[in-house]
Simulated scan of single mutants.
Amino acid sequence: MGGSQSTRKLSVDNENAIQVSQEALDRIQAQLSAKQPEPASQPPPQYAPPPPMYDSSKRQEAAAEEAYWARRIENLKRAHEKINSGMIVEYQKTLKEANELFELVQADKIANKLPPCQEEKAKVLECYSTNPDKSLLCSVLVSEFNDCVCKSRIAAVTASS
């Protein structure tokens, strides 16, 4: 039971099969080879112009339609020019504002590049260089420099808040 394979053979007899002799095949092939494809000598298709309009009402209708589309195109061109000019004005305005903001930022960066209290610092250094052995004579200038530094720190903190 299932231990060996069974083989089945099936044969079908077709009584309707057509048999063609070799002689008939040779004649068919000779006829096919005798017929050679003819070159396409057809002229390319030409498009005829539209038929003339004999009716005057159709001519008037076509002229009115042409005028309508010409007006419509002109109106669209004018609308486009208005929109374009408005965009140019807005672009110039925005560019001007951006340049002003950029200039403010650049000026602020330049102002912030220098450390605060440069004048007071210069006075203190000058006092120390003129009085190398008497540093207590410069205590008033040092106090002013210290006050300036404290004020600039407070200003920086309040500006960033």
Rank of each mutant, 00 (worst) to 15 (best):
M1C: 05
G2W: 02
S4A: 08
S6P: 07
S11Y: 01
V12E: 02
D13L: 08
N14G: 03
Q22L: 07
Q22Y: 02
E23S: 12
L25T: 01
A30M: 08
S33N: 10
A34G: 04
P39G: 14
A40M: 09
S41L: 15
P44L: 02
P45M: 04
Q46G: 10
Y47A: 14
A48R: 15
A48L: 15
M53W: 11
Y54M: 09
D55W: 11
S57K: 12
E61I: 00
A62K: 14
A64W: 00
A64Q: 13
A64V: 04
I73F: 13
E74V: 06
A79I: 10
H80K: 15
E81I: 11
E81R: 15
I83W: 13
V89E: 10
V89G: 07
E90P: 00
Q92Y: 14
Q92C: 13
K93F: 00
T94K: 13
E97C: 00
A98K: 07
A98V: 00
A98C: 04
E103R: 08
A107I: 00
I110A: 08
N112C: 02
N112H: 05
P116G: 03
C117H: 04
Q118P: 05
E119A: 09
E120W: 05
A122S: 15
C127G: 03
Y128V: 07
N131Y: 12
N131T: 06
P132F: 05
D133L: 14
K134S: 01
K134E: 01
C138T: 02
V140N: 08
L141A: 08
V142K: 12
S143Y: 02
F145R: 14
F145K: 13
N146P: 04
S152W: 04
S152T: 02
R153M: 03
I154N: 03
S161D: 02
